[in-house]
């Protein structure tokens, strides 16, 4: 796709930009959707130094209670490696207990949006903004299931599987599991005792 076409697609909300992770796949008679996770930036205490840019005007403000959806790494592109994901966390959560942090939220997406082959927990897909918005509205009870599924079918939205990001997410999580194990090896005195039989 050319850059111009990409921009046009983004403007129309049909460019698949929002990363989501499959959490659980439901295949029931009246409900065939997958619960998906997305990463967001949250802020729970006032944070200075922010500027809102609207119609060529810059408005400084004190940020509080932000919730922003994460779309891409700091240097753009995709989260193709675990380092790119970790870099995002490190930059946002410089101090783990400061006001801004990364968290996860969920939404439901109809299974027919996905390709069958890769529809399984842990798979990373990218979806267009318009689909994300409809899913968000369904999650927050603004759209009924019928309205939501109807929109998905009407507009023919599809999710794009992202193999490299799926792999990177798995490696990133493994890194933190390994880090946990190292802590336990360093501090065996803090671990729970084994049951004696």
């Amino acid at each position: 796709m050319t850059d111009r076409n990409k921009l046009a697609a983004e403007d129309r909300g049909i460019s698949e930009r929002v990363p989501i992770v499959i959490d659980d796949v439901k295949r029931l008679k009246t409900f065939s959707m997958s619960r998906c996770i997305y990463f967001s930036i949250e802020c729970d205490s006032p944070s200075p130094g922010w500027t809102l840019r609207i119609r060529n005007r810059k408005i400084p403000f004190l940020l509080v209670a932000l919730s922003g959806i994460i779309l891409e790494p700091i240097d753009g592109g995709l989260f193709r490696t675990p380092d790119k994901l970790e870099q995002l966390f490190e930059n946002i959560e410089k101090d783990s207990d400061e006001g801004i942090y990364v968290d996860t939220n969920d939404l439901w997406i109809p299974n027919f949006i996905f390709d069958r082959k890769n529809l399984k927990p842990g798979s990373v897909y990218r979806v267009a903004f318009k689909l994300f918005k409809a899913a968000y509205d369904f999650r927050n009870q603004i759209l009924s299931q019928q309205e939501y599924v109807g929109q998905c079918k009407k507009y023919g939205w599809k999710a794009r599987y992202s193999a490299s990001e799926t792999k990177a997410l798995g490696l990133w999580q493994k890194k933190h599991i390994d880090e946990t194990k190292e802590r336990h090896e360093k501090h065996p005195e803090l671990t729970l005792r084994r049951q004696t039989k």
Partner: peptide, 18 residues
């Protein structure tokens, strides 16, 4: 084995004083 949310929680647990 479930990747995503758990990684976020473990990363935080390894770093936070909370």
């Amino acid at each position: 084995l479930r990747q995503g949310m758990l990684g976020n929680l473990l990363r935080y647990a390894n770093r936070s004083t909370n």
